[in-house]
Simulated scan of single mutants.
Amino acid sequence: MFAGDFFAPHQIRLVDIPLEEARVSAEPGEPRILFQPELACLCGSDLLFYEGDYPEYRPHVGQSLHEMVGRVLKSESDRFQPGERVLAVPYEHFGFYERYWVAASRAIPVDPRPPLAQALMAQPLGTVIYALKKLPDILDRDVAVMGQGPMGLLWTASLRNLGARNIIGVDPVAERREVSRQMGATEVLDPGEGNLAEAIAELTEGGADIVIEAVGHREQVLPQCIDACRPGGTILFFGVPTETIDGVPMRRAFLKNLRIVTSVNPDFRRDFPLAMQWIAEKRLDVAPLLTHRYDLAEIGSAFELFHAKRDGAIKVLIDMPQ
């Protein structure tokens, strides 16, 4: 069977391996399903492996895909039957395989009501829902979302649903700022134009109650989040960080009495099913995020487009061979 191999920075090839060599995303003795992906989607955290120069994210064969829906081929669990369509999330992005074993507890049924590509968005949306539970009540709050890539846009839409007063989408890419308004931003800002903290303070009468850092990686903007947040406010660092972050003005955060929160590992019993429900019931429209679709044979081009943020790329889908 095929497996993905990021064999050099920005270079991807398919290699042939036996199923037994694929990373098993389950603990010993845990009921599993043999999962065959049908449709996958690129995520910003996959770029850590694609770029290939993060010491803490050195790619191995089988990395990096983790947002995917597909079919159950075999099941050791009463929860799923062969042929059933599920959303499954592998350990540590080890999902770039033709098929692989994954714990049944790391899968949820796919709701048949929305198009499959939209149902797939329950995976990233579930991570937002989990993080939202860590924040103060959103109703009537002023919120700034740093980064309007796929995750930042899901944040924007979710904040609109939960009743935020002002939702400020911040991104240097003009096309993403346009989609930000579609997803619910009341204002959009280009961080390269003028003083960002002053602009947010003017829009919010002194600073955002909550600031979402949805950039992460080496491009993280935690210092800007500290500047944009009002005294006593909350910062949620949602973007995937590097091992250490230098140059963060922690004394400024300390003096402002800021609360800094992180979020990872949503609940498969609650968060992903709720995200699937939101999408199926059309409480949140994810269609504007789905901008490009490629066959697996073109995955190198898909990653290059996604990495460069070209052609309005937001969510880039990959059709897996069946």
Rank of each mutant, 00 (worst) to 15 (best):
L135P: 03
G147Y: 03
R177M: 11
G147F: 08
Q182A: 15
P112Y: 13
L135Q: 08
V179W: 02
G95V: 08
R160V: 03
A119K: 02
A122I: 10
L139Q: 12
I108V: 15
L159K: 01
T127M: 11
P136F: 11
W155Q: 00
R176N: 09
A117K: 13
P114C: 14
A185Y: 05
I108T: 04
G149H: 07
L120Q: 06
V179P: 05
R177I: 09
W101L: 06
M183H: 03
T156M: 06
I167G: 08
P172T: 12
L162D: 00
Y91H: 15
P150D: 07
D140S: 13
K134H: 09
D137K: 09
N166S: 15
D171L: 11
A88F: 05
M183L: 15
L132P: 04
L159T: 01
T186F: 09
V145Q: 06
P191M: 09
G95R: 10
K134I: 04
A164E: 08
D142K: 08
R106G: 07
D111E: 14
G147N: 07
V188C: 07
D137T: 14
R165C: 09
L120T: 07
A157Y: 00
H93S: 14
L153N: 00
T127C: 15
N166G: 04
G152P: 06
R99W: 08
A107Y: 03
M121Q: 12
A117E: 15
R99H: 10
M151G: 02
A174D: 11
M121V: 07
L153R: 00
V188D: 00
V143R: 04
D140W: 11
L116M: 12
I129S: 03
A185R: 00
L159N: 01
R99L: 12
S105A: 15
A174P: 12
Y97D: 07
A103N: 07
E92P: 00
P90I: 03
P136C: 10
R176T: 04
V89Q: 03
K133F: 12
M146P: 05
A88S: 11
L135T: 07
A104Y: 08
